[in-house]
Design a protein around this nucleic acid. Structure first.
Length: 348
DNA sequence: GAGGCGTGGAG
DNA sequence: TCTCCAAGCCT
């Protein structure tokens, strides 16, 4: 039996990870959301931080969104943090703290889709729901040499049905974790460790040496160029920060005033006509700009930072100027964090 | 339902 | 330097 083989392998080879030491569905949920599209190595410290800062779903529900985002800083896909917060409030306020315990109920939480609902329901509650994540796609497509693209409707259905047909009836949670662990540590995208694989005897792609052909994917996202001009405006040892819109990239995070252009700007004079109204050209002194390319999965941000010394600030605008310590507490995206690390603005 | 949404590690 | 891509979800 295939499921017995990998479950046995799992019990002997699984990594010791903190979310495997608990049956608390709240903790398991946190780990699953943190690990969406994220490697264990990267997510681990965030998991430890979140269970420390928010030991219960009520603690998370009662936190300020800005603080949750600050704790999420650097992990990416920030809608996960906002959805996590909203779902915690949903559980605390509408479900009286009773954590949803079935696939169907779990899916009503923001940020919980098919994968995460199946993971939580099987691992925390023993429900017989097979997970299909990137690992499972890879393992199954290689095992049976399945050519159907994993990101087509047909493929999603096919792999879902296949995973369900293989699930262990008595230990669905272990089966799911075993499949993912196998994909993460043995059946890796590149250089799979086939000699160590518990399924080597029945793997079609090992037999035919076609591992690198699987899984099959379509629709590769192409990267688009964007040109961001950030105004690093200083006044009396404070820097102006503003919050990004609640939609789009880096939603709700703080950054410097931004002027987006359709190409690289070399001369500051080209930006003058687009300055925010609280920056009067007569009141400013421009420093030496610096450039940085920030790569995202779907965009290449060509960033240019323009240091600006602003002589006069009205009271209305003053509230957007922050001290070094205040800036440390603001949730910021990585482009801004990197800039601040590379360019100490505040001399000690 | 195709595209938007981050970051960093591996090769 | 460049490409791929990692325990996906939402619109």
């Amino acid at each position: 039996m295939l499921s017995s083989k990998i479950i046995e392998w799992y019990h002997q080879n699984k990594r010791n990870l903190p979310w495997r030491e608990t049956s608390n569905p709240y903790f398991i949920w946190l780990s699953e959301v943190i690990l969406q599209q994220t490697r264990v190595d990267q997510g681990l410290e965030y998991y430890l931080r979140f269970i420390e800062a928010y030991p219960t779903v009520f603690d998370l529900a009662g936190a300020h969104q800005e603080e949750v985002l600050r704790n999420w800083q650097g992990l990416g896909y920030y809608s996960r943090a906002r959805n996590l917060h909203a779902a915690a409030q949903y559980i605390a306020n509408e479900l009286n703290g009773n954590f949803p315990s079935t696939f169907t109920e779990l899916k009503k939480m923001k940020g919980v889709g098919d994968y995460t609902a199946a993971a939580i329901s099987s691992i925390a509650f023993g429900e017989k729901k097979a997970v299909v994540d990137g690992n499972v796609y890879r393992v199954l497509s290689r095992l049976f040499e399945i050519d159907t693209p994993i990101n087509s409707n047909k493929g999603i259905k096919k792999f879902s049905n296949l995973a369900d047909s293989l699930i262990d009836n008595k230990r669905p949670g272990d089966y799911n974790q075993a499949m993912m662990e196998l994909g993460a540590t043995i059946c890796k995208p590149k250089k799979p460790l086939c000699p160590e694989c518990p399924l080597a005897a029945e793997c079609q792609s090992l037999k035919n040496q076609t591992q690198q052909n699987y899984p099959v994917k379509i629709n590769k996202t192409k990267v688009r160029d964007r040109y961001f001009n950030y105004l690093v405006v200083e006044n009396e040892s404070k820097i102006f920060f503003q919050k990004r819109p609640q939609k789009g990239i880096w939603a709700g995070l703080f950054e410097f005033p931004l002027i987006e252009t359709d190409k690289v700007v070399e001369d500051f004079q080209l930006l003058v006509k687009n300055l925010p109204d609280w920056i009067k050209p007569k009141d400013i002194a421009i420093g030496i700009p610096s450039s940085k390319i920030h790569l995202l999965s779907h965009q290449r941000i060509n960033a240019r930072f323009w240091p600006i010394d602003l002589a006069k600030v009205d009271n209305q605008t003053r509230i957007n100027f922050f001290t070094e310590d205040e800036i440390e507490q603001l949730p910021k995206h990585q482009l801004i964090v990197n800039y601040l690390n590379d360019n100490p603005i505040f001399k000690t």
